[in-house]
Design a protein around this nucleic acid. Structure first.
Lengths: 119, 119
DNA sequence: ACGTTGTTTTGATAGATGTCAACCTAGACA
DNA sequence: TGTCTAGGTTGACATCTATCAAAACAACGT
């Protein structure tokens, strides 16, 4: 059995191999669209796009929520909500270490999305 | 005066040069996020993602709405609404020629988005 | 045990979104 | 002018989303 259960199994978001040829090459199948669209949707909010970039560009590959929250003029719960959205879209992982929670980007799905948009 | 008026002028979506380094390289500025997030948002719906791929991969670089609509089990107005969303996000152009309307992908912004996600 | 700090969850609310039916517009053709 | 077809627009409705306040949960330090 493959490592990622719970997914439609047609698309492994962590796979190194692209799931589909680029958008401009051939039509994205409905099943692939159903899995990939939520990821784009998660990036479709200015706050989440910035959060994602702060996480992905963190010097040590990870960043504390305590460093993310004060970077925006939004309440803690709102930032937490956006982070949950990114998590559920499969874009990031969260890990609690002691008092703080650290977020880390999942490179696989980023590659999938980039490959889909590449010419 | 630059060619594209009406935009924040900080970001030219048709520029060949990327507006920002990749997501994972450094934090996306708020102004860039405000312009780019709507494009991701437009791709964040399964129907629109498929529409976009059908348009971008059209053999002649363009495709008729009359070829798009029957590809989904959705009403004409709904497809029209999604196409308008893609248009307003700057992802596609529409041109009427006689009876039919043809859609064409705008490669510039696709490059911007791909560059943002690339490692 | 208690209080403090960091993070998430819950509840509530205003606003956005996807969808369709009904209607409207643009062009072709007679 | 009239009618037909391809698309778009409007209005309505149910659902979803972004946001915050309040509460709950988790870990640390007394």
């Amino acid at each position: 059995m493959p490592k990622s259960a719970g997914s439609p199994a047609l698309l492994d978001l962590d796979a190194a191999t692209p799931c589909c040829p680029p958008l401009a090459r051939q039509r994205v199948p409905a099943e692939a669209a159903a899995v990939l669209a939520p990821a784009f949707k998660a990036l479709g909010d200015p706050v989440r796009l910035q959060l994602m970039s702060m996480i992905a560009s963190a010097p040590d590959g990870e960043i504390c929520v305590c460093d993310l929250t004060p970077a925006f003029e939004l309440s803690g719960p709102t930032i937490s909500h956006h982070l949950k959205t990114l998590r559920e879209a499969g874009l990031v992982n969260a890990e609690r270490r002691g008092t703080w929670v650290y977020y880390r980007a999942r490179p696989g799905i980023m590659r999938q999305l980039a490959g889909l948009l590449a010419t």
